[in-house]
């Protein structure tokens, strides 16, 4: 019997497949289907800082600022006591998932400032979140903000958070840091229990008719997992925190490659949105079959076996990949030229 268990933020999961933050978690039926298909844990859809703030604004507006000073109308919409804020809905959803699922539930926060996050994190902890994924998706448009300033922003939030909550915290990062490895180390020192590499930024588009900049969403493809693969491979063995791979995990092959590189878990989102929750079961089966064929006994065994530290040709993870691709006429080192 192959041992698929893996370690994730101090928890033992039954396998390394964890659906990442997506709308699937909103639907309790879809979440259950994911669990049935074999998901070892589930990350909830993100609670966006802007959504929470906008929600409060709207509530404020609803309660107070419908007054335009006209004698015949003191307000324009009925004031509702039962108005459930976005935050309240999220907490309810978390509690619901905890009730109906056996697998761990990870709450996900997406924002750029620390105010309010700590309060939200506490509430999430109280509502039963097994871990918190912190997605500090920050685009520095102010050119005066150096890399250090940007990084310190993340560290501040994390430090503040870790002082207030006991639940494990995993930082979901984009790849756009000057020195990814160094930054991950800093995060580890600041108390992060894990990192999730890499978040994709949704890239806006230009509408050629209106000349407006419009938001656009294109789901990932397998090729995007290569970036995570490179850095996980580099980090494996050099840091102790959990390494989670995200973006571009579509097939069993993708997942295996990432595990070989050193990932503790692999997240999936686009593939599940595209093919449905049952797809996770397919990937799990594929993983098991491959391990059986190749006669691996456990995930722990294969994890990181093709990391930078342990790969046959580790330099391929580095810059030389670029050169090798360009010139395919080189002979190996072992041949005398």
């Amino acid at each position: 019997m192959i041992d698929l268990t893996t370690n994730y933020l101090g928890m033992t999961l039954k396998n390394p497949l964890v659906p990442s933050a997506s709308p699937l978690a909103r639907d309790p039926d879809a979440a259950k289907k994911l669990e049935d298909a074999g998901a070892a844990a589930i990350v909830m859809n993100s609670l966006f800082e802007e959504e929470v703030n906008a929600d409060e604004e709207q509530l404020d507006h609803l309660m107070h600022h419908q007054d335009i000073g006209h004698g015949e109308a003191a307000s324009y919409l009925p004031a509702e006591d039962s108005y459930k804020t976005h935050l309240e809905s999220y907490l309810e959803q978390l509690e619901g998932l905890k009730r109906s699922l056996e697998i761990p539930v990870i709450a996900s926060l997406n924002g750029t400032t620390s105010s309010g996050w700590i309060r939200h994190a506490k509430l999430l902890q109280e509502s039963g979140a097994d871990a918190l994924e912190l997605n500090v998706y920050y685009l520095p448009t102010d050119l005066a903000q150096s890399a250090e300033i940007v990084e310190s922003r993340y560290l501040e939030i994390l430090t503040g958070l870790k002082q207030q909550v006991e639940t494990p915290v995993i930082m979901k990062l984009s790849s756009q840091f000057s020195s990814v490895g160094n930054f991950v180390q800093k995060l580890e020192k600041a108390g992060a229990d894990g990192v999730s590499l890499f978040n994709r930024y949704y890239l806006p588009d230009i509408d050629l008719e209106t000349l407006d900049v419009v938001p656009s969403l294109k789901l990932s493809t397998s090729v995007e997992s290569r970036l995570s693969m490179r850095w996980i491979a580099m980090l494996y063995g050099r840091v102790n925190l959990t390494l989670a791979a995200t973006s571009g995990v579509h097939t069993a092959g993708d997942a295996i490659k990432l595990l070989l590189a050193g990932a503790d878990v692999t997240h999936m989102c686009a593939a599940l949105l595209h093919h449905g929750p049952a797809h996770l079961g397919e990937v799990l089966k594929g993983l098991e079959q491959w391990m059986e064929e190749k006669e691996y006994s456990s995930v722990t065994q294969l994890k990181g076996s093709v990391s930078h530290a342990k790969a046959t040709n580790p330099s391929a993870f580095e810059r030389s990949n670029y050169i090798k691709v360009l010139s395919s006429f080189d002979s190996p080192d072992s041949v005398w030229r």
Partner: peptide, 12 residues
């Protein structure tokens, strides 16, 4: 009292 739990940021 007006905002209760719902509008912590606004209270702030």
């Amino acid at each position: 009292k007006t905002y209760g739990r719902k509008g912590a940021k606004i209270v702030e």
